[in-house]
Amino acid sequence: MTARAAAEPTAADRRRWARYLVEERAEGLVYQKLAGRKSGEEKEILQSLADAERRHEQHWLDLLGGEPARLPKAGIRSRSLGWMAGRFGSIFVLVLAQTAEGRSPYDAEQYATPAMRADEKIHEEVVRGLAARGRRRLSGSFRAAVFGANDGLVSNLALVLGIGATGVGPGFVLFSGIAGLLAGALSMGAGEFVSVRSQRELLASTEANEDAALSAGDLDIDENELALVYRARGVDEAEALARSRRIITAAQEGVRRAATGPIRAHAGADHDIVGTDWSAAISSFLLFSSGAIIPVLPWIFGLQGIAAVIVALVLVGTALLGTGAMVGILSGGPPLGRALRQLAIGFGAAAITHALGLAFGVGAV
C-alpha cells in the first residue's frame, strides 16, 4: 500500500471497500449458519472461519471510518449461499463456498493486508476439507440416487423415441414406455437384491465359529493356533498372540466369551455398512422408476407425434441438466460442463435408437 493511496482514498476506493465489507459480512453469516447446524469439531472449524471473516470485515470498517450510512447489497452468490445455508445440507453450500473462496479479489487489492490474502487461500483449503468429509458421507447414497434416476431417464427416453420412430401408434409407444419402466426397475431392484444378499452371505461366511469359544480354555497358552485365526485375518503376529493369550486366560478363569470376539464385532460392522437387501432393492426400483416415468409423461397425458417427442425431450433434458449440474457441484467441477455432458450422453443414446427406429420401422418393412 502506498502512502499516497493510504492518505487519499478515492470515491471508487471507498465503494470497493464497501463491497468487500458486505461480502465479508455475508460470508461470515454463511459459516455462522452452517456452524449452527453442526456439532463437535466441524462446528468449531466453521465458527473459526466465521470469526476470520469478521476480522476481515473489521479491516474494511476501519478503512471506511465506521459503518457507512448506505451499503450496497451483497452479490447474488453470497445471498444465495446465505439462503441455502439455513435450509439445505451443508455439502452443497460448502462446495459453492469453496469456489467462492478460490476467487478472492484480494490478490490484486492494494488495501488488503498480506494476512488477509493468505487467509483467503487457507480458507479455500479448509472448506475443501470440510466438503470432502461431506462427499465421503454422501458418495454411496448420492451415487446410487443419481445413477439410478439417470439410467431410467436415458434408457426409457431411448426406448420411446426408438419405438415412436417406427411409425406405431401412440398407444403402443405408451405401453412400451410403461413396460420399459417396469422391466428396468424390476431388473435394477432384483440385481441390487442379489448383489447385497450375496455380499451379506459372503460376510457371514467370514464370521467366527461359535464352537471356538468352547475350546478356548483347553488351548495351550504358549503354543496355540488361536493366534493363527487373527493372523489369517490380517492382524500382525505380536498382536495376534497377545489377543489369543488374553482370550485363553479369560476362558481358563471361567469367563465365557467368544474366542474371536473382536473379529466378530468387525464383521457385524461390515453388515451395517452393506445394508439390507430389501431396502437396497426397493430404493433401486424407486430411483429407476422416478427417472423412467419422465419420458413417458407426454403420452400418459394424451400427447402424440412430434408434440409428444418435443415435450419428452424438454422434460428429460431439464432433468439431465439438473443431475449433471448437481454432480458438478458436488465433485467440485464446473456445473455447466457436467450438465452439458450429461445432456449430450442422454440425447446421444436417444438419437441412436431413434435412427434405428426410422431405419427398421413400419415404413421400412
Rank of each mutant, 00 (worst) to 15 (best):
Q252A: 11
F92V: 14
E237N: 03
T323F: 15
Q110N: 10
R246S: 12
A319D: 01
D277G: 09
S244T: 04
A18H: 08
A265P: 03
I306S: 12
V93F: 00
S104A: 08
V160F: 02
T99M: 01
W17T: 01
T249P: 04
E239N: 11
V127S: 02
V314S: 00
F88Q: 14
T276Q: 14
D270N: 12
V229Y: 14
A112M: 10
G180R: 00
R37F: 05
T206S: 12
A238S: 07
D151R: 03
A250G: 11
V327K: 14
L340I: 14
A258E: 15
F142R: 12
G184R: 00
G152D: 00
R87M: 07
A185H: 03
L61D: 01
L61S: 04
I263K: 04
F88P: 03
Q32C: 05
S244D: 03
S155T: 15
G337W: 04
R15D: 13
L161W: 00
K73M: 13
E67P: 01
G305P: 05
D222P: 02
R70V: 10
D236N: 07
A325T: 07
V296T: 05
G82D: 03
R200Q: 12
L186H: 01
E192V: 03
I91P: 00
P170S: 10
S48C: 01
Y111R: 13
S141D: 11
S48T: 08
N209G: 05
R257W: 09
I294D: 04
A100W: 01
G171Y: 03
A349W: 07
V235T: 06
L21S: 01
F301E: 02
A280R: 13
H271C: 08
G65K: 11
G348D: 09
E57K: 10
G148L: 04
I221Y: 12
W299G: 04
I310W: 10
I345Q: 10
A100M: 10
I293L: 07
L130D: 03
Y31L: 05
V126Q: 06
A280D: 03
R245E: 08
D222G: 07
S195P: 07
S290W: 00
S331Y: 10
A185R: 04
W83K: 15
I329F: 09
H266F: 11
G148C: 06
A131F: 01
A112D: 09
